[in-house]
Simulated scan of single mutants.
Amino acid sequence: MAAFRGPKVRLWLWRWRRNPLRRRSDAVEAWIVFVAWVFTVLGGVITGLAAGHTVEHGLAQQRAERRSVPALLTENAPTARAAESGTFVWAKVRWTAADGSQRAGRTRVHAGTGAGTPVTVWTDPAGRLVTEPASASQARLRASLVGVLAGVSGAGVPFVCGRLVRGRLERRRMAQWDQEWERIGPLWGRKTS
């Protein structure tokens, strides 16, 4: 014979259903958990999307502003040890800016490159040396990674706040149970006959 089973109630809705044993603190805790999860999910998604969009927009702006410019090495690049073949070293270069002025600076080139060798450098609108901008696919990857990290961080704030409030409610509820037990517990020792 199968045991009697009452109506099936979703466990996660137990705090909202009618129950004579449900206290006000149970309903408050249910709403706190609900609001914390809503803010956790929405906050994480919105923060992640906003951060990813901002990073991708910034990198696209860099791609639009930065230009590759031919330059010449003005000195021999230092040589690397044999074990480090294919490494890059810093060397002095000279290039002509967009306004026609001659500029000089240091950039990374292959080790052992001789003076007078043409190299490509990247400049900003003012003609200063800058790093090569990220490609569109690199920008998408960086924006995605930053978006995920920002989203997780943004979701962590309401999640942690909800956990702290819920922990405080739990401590308060346990203190109330202790008070009730001190009042009711001694009555259990009395004989009723």
Rank of each mutant, 00 (worst) to 15 (best):
A2F: 10
F4A: 04
R5A: 11
G6R: 11
L11G: 13
L11H: 14
W12I: 09
L13I: 03
W14P: 01
W16P: 05
W16S: 02
R18P: 01
R18E: 09
P20E: 12
P20R: 13
P20L: 09
R22P: 00
A27M: 14
A27G: 03
A30G: 15
A30H: 10
F34H: 08
F34I: 11
A36L: 08
A36T: 15
V38D: 13
V38N: 14
F39Q: 03
T40D: 15
V41T: 13
L42S: 14
G44E: 12
V45Y: 03
L49G: 04
A51S: 15
G52C: 00
E56W: 06
H57A: 14
G58F: 01
L59V: 01
L59K: 03
Q61S: 08
E65R: 12
E65I: 06
R67E: 15
S68H: 12
V69A: 06
L72D: 00
L73C: 11
P78Y: 02
P78H: 08
P78D: 14
A80W: 02
A82L: 12
A83P: 05
E84T: 05
F88G: 01
A91V: 04
K92M: 00
K92R: 07
T96C: 03
A97R: 01
G100N: 04
S101Q: 03
Q102F: 00
R106V: 09
R108E: 09
R108D: 01
H110R: 13
H110G: 14
H110M: 13
T113W: 00
G114N: 06
G114W: 02
A115H: 02
A115I: 06
A115K: 10
G116L: 06
G116I: 02
T117P: 05
T120A: 08
T120L: 12
T120V: 12
T123Q: 06
D124G: 10
R128W: 03
T131N: 15
E132L: 11
E132F: 02
A134N: 08
L141V: 11
A143L: 05
V148S: 00
A150R: 01
V157K: 04
V157L: 14
V157Y: 05
V160D: 08
V160E: 08
C161W: 04
C161P: 02
R163C: 07
R163M: 10
L164W: 07
V165R: 04
G167K: 15
R168Y: 07
L169I: 11
L169E: 01
R172F: 10
R173S: 00
M174L: 15
M174S: 07
W177V: 05
W177G: 01
W177K: 07
Q179N: 05
Q179M: 08
W181T: 04
R183A: 13
I184S: 06
I184Q: 08
G185R: 11
G189M: 12
S193F: 11
